[in-house]
Computed example of a mutant assay.
Amino acid sequence: MTDRDAHPRTRLDDNFASPIRFSLMASLGESVELDFATLADILQANDSALSKAISHLQAAGYVRARKGSAGSRPRTWVRSTPAGMSAFSGHLRALREIVELGGHVGF
Rank of each mutant, 00 (worst) to 15 (best):
D3A: 07
T2F: 03
G61K: 04
R11A: 14
M1L: 13
R75G: 03
G29V: 09
G102Y: 02
S31M: 12
T38V: 11
L12K: 06
M25K: 04
G61Q: 01
F88N: 04
P8I: 05
V32Q: 10
S48M: 08
R93G: 09
A53T: 05
A17E: 11
G90C: 00
G61R: 00
M1H: 12
N15C: 09
D47R: 14
A45H: 06
A53C: 07
S23Y: 03
H104I: 11
R96N: 12
R96P: 00
A70R: 13
A17R: 10
E30A: 04
V63G: 06
I42A: 00
A45D: 06
H7E: 09
Y62W: 02
P74L: 02
A94Q: 06
D3Q: 07
L92S: 09
P82T: 10
S72G: 11
A83V: 09
R73K: 14
A6D: 14
V32A: 05
V32F: 05
V32W: 01
E97V: 04
D13Y: 07
P8K: 01
I54S: 00
R64E: 15
R73Y: 12
L101H: 08
S31L: 13
L12I: 12
H7Q: 06
N46C: 03
F88Q: 04
S89P: 02
G102S: 07
A94H: 09
T38I: 07
S80V: 01
H91P: 05
E33L: 00
N15S: 14
